[in-house]
């Protein structure tokens, strides 16, 4: 029961925040991906950095359970699937999480995205044996690995560098890039954009 309450509270917070940062709005997604307005990119980079620093910091202080980490396997299909997702993301302006939230917020085209998504997931269920036999789902670089070696975690490290220190350093890099990235790259090159 506790887990259901946590699902309700964290899930609802996530949905509300996705709505407030503009991630459920394809206008922001399209303008981020065609590099005219990087507002959302700055938000995402700052979020990854903040999450990373808090998580690894908490783990180093011993207040966060390292066992809660869940690292996905690396294989060639991750890259191919990433390419497909990226193409569909640019085309529709939605990804799975923002798509369901946009549908709930009243966007009718997002319901079509969700319906297409259910069919796409079903198509993968039907064609999974083919991918499984292709070898493209075989682990590469050690499979479920982190960039450094995180003390106490179930996952191996790609390098022997202290994983939690590296996590905090990379988290800081994400935060710095979020600050340094220009909101409007074309404006930074001296072009004049009409006021919104």
């Amino acid at each position: 029961m506790t887990s259901i309450i946590l699902a309700l509270v964290i899930g609802a917070s996530f949905g509300a925040v996705l709505d407030r940062i503009g991630a459920t709005n394809p206008n922001y997604i399209s303008k981020m991906l065609n590099l005219t307005n990087l507002h959302l990119m700055k938000t995402i980079l700052l979020a990854i950095g903040t999450g990373s620093i808090l998580m690894f910091g908490g783990q180093m202080l011993g207040i966060i359970d390292v066992g809660h980490m869940s690292v996905k396997a690396a294989y060639i299909g991750v890259f191919i699937g990433g390419l497909l997702l990226g193409g569909g993301w640019a085309l529709s302006g939605y990804c799975p999480g923002t798509g369901v939230c946009a549908a709930a917020s009243g966007r009718k085209d997002a319901w079509f995205f969700v319906a297409g998504g259910l069919l796409g997931a079903a198509a993968y269920m039907a064609t999974y044996p083919m991918w499984d036999n292709s070898g493209l789902l075989e682990n590469i670089l050690g499979g479920k690995v982190t960039l450094g070696t995180v003390p106490g975690s179930d996952y191996a490290g790609l390098t022997a560098i202290s994983g939690d220190l590296l996590g905090i350093v990379l988290g800081t890099v994400f935060v710095l890039v979020a600050f340094l990235l220009p909101e409007r790259p074309s404006a930074a090159r001296g072009e004049v954009l009409p006021a919104e």
Partner: peptide, 27 residues
Amino acid sequence: GGFIVLYGARLAGGCTSGHMMSGMMQT
């Protein structure tokens, strides 16, 4: 777009939330 996104996400084993945000956050 939804079809391609979810087919790709299942092939990759995750999406923008699971792989990109949660994944990069965990290094």
